[in-house]
Design a protein around this nucleic acid. Structure first.
Lengths: 231, 231
DNA sequence: TCTACAATTTAGCCATGACTAAAAACTACT
DNA sequence: AGTAGTTTTTAGTCATGGCTAAATTGTAGA
């Protein structure tokens, strides 16, 4: 039950606190300005509730809050967020690899588990997986000390036709979307051949395991790929 | 996230509600009269809080409450309690077998996880373990339909000296106690030879893997054994 | 700069579920 | 049966963290 960050934080954090911090981290990492509306929409509470909570997190020195400004994480806040994200992504991979939970389901399961696993369990999971670097969607797993790498690759929507690629990351956790990709045979590290890149944000034609599929531009933008030869 | 009992229950239950129901179940199963003081002491809240909660559970038709009487579970309440207990015990075994978490630690870990796993995850865990019947302490695992067997065996403190036994259950979840037993080589299904049974609740002399140990009577009473030959 | 619209914050409400202190109700002993 | 002592319940407080509605602030266009 001892958390990494327990030494730095006075009161224990609830799942909710952790969810706010994680949300702020993710929105920041996306490069967005974490305004109150962006945050409240993301977490699914009203703007008033978000203001309220952000103020409390600010008193705990987890975020920096200035009225009418974007929120940001303090170093401690970031540490907490990264610890939760580490739990989340380790759990996703663990559930997928050890229990065969489909990749479109692991997210919501991990969403609840991430708040209740101990350090010891986190360590045991990491060890059993051989200290992995990415989760089943290709998202990087933060280290215990709070470092996080960035996955290489670029969107399939910006790739060149007539070349082979390898899928290294999917920028979505939506169950339906992931299930759809799964049905096309598109999962992590799968190779694909880019047949055609329609102009004006048109669909993309890809070949996966010998079968051709058309993908909406919006979908292709979520698929991060590297040239097939690259490690 | 869909729970077995969701069809029968109006409002979703919190971890806390579930803990109360589980506590009532366990106390009932121990054969105790689940009075308010017994319950409140077990869950670690004040008697006033327990009354309060029991009344709410009663309104939800999960327990039967009559002022100044022992509480008891309704069929639905029992179903919920058994589902949580199933989660708990499956998790204990899973953590122990799949992640090598020591048997003296699985309880507290499962205590938090039991409230947040989905039906799908419960099923996946059960399947991966081959639909086990008992957890690492020998406690029976309720079935999905809410049946629960009872482990055979009798306390070591009532066993006869000069015979060999097999440990089939330990009636304690205390970390220190379990760690101690573990150091003696006493874990589930281990064989032991009962050298001497001191009278007047005196200590018990057992031989485990060729080494002799003296056990306090109190400890011996917690160890359920069967004759070594028995399956 | 002024005004209209959008974003944010404030104020105040509500439910939850813990708590303490006091009242009430049971039990057991004389 | 009466009373002392224990158990249980009631009454009322508090913190949390959601909510709505209203006030405020900020911003962009005329």
């Amino acid at each position: 039950m001892t958390k990494n960050y327990s030494s730095e934080i006075a009161s224990p954090l609830s799942s909710n606190h952790e969810d706010y911090l994680k949300a702020i981290y993710i929105l920041e990492a996306r490069g967005e300005q974490v305004t109150n509306s962006v945050l409240s929409e993301y977490i699914g509470f009203t703007p008033a509730s978000a203001t309220n909570m952000v103020k409390k997190l600010s008193q705990m020195d987890l975020v920096i809050y200035r009225p009418h400004q974007a929120v940001s994480l303090t170093p401690t806040g970031r540490r907490v967020a990264l610890e939760i994200l580490r739990h989340h992504r380790l759990l996703e991979l663990f559930l997928h690899k050890t229990l065969d939970i489909p990749w479109d389901s692991v997210h919501e399961e991990a969403e609840r588990l991430e708040h209740v696993i101990s350090e010891a369990l986190e360590d045991a999971i990491a060890a059993s997986l051989g200290y992995p670097k990415v989760d089943p969607h290709g998202d990087p797993i933060p280290t215990k000390t709070g470092e996080i790498g960035h996955t290489p690759g670029h969107p399939l929507s910006q790739a060149k036709a007539g070349r082979a690629y390898r899928l290294v990351r999917v920028l979505s956790q939506e169950k339906e979307r992931l299930a759809y990709l799964g049905r096309l045979g598109l999962s992590l590290n799968v190779e694909l051949f880019l047949r055609e890149q329609a102009p004006f944000d048109g669909p993309v034609l890809v070949e996966v395991a010998g079968v051709e599929h058309a993908l909406a531009a919006e979908m292709a933008a979520l698929l991060q790929v590297v040239p097939a030869s690259a490690k």
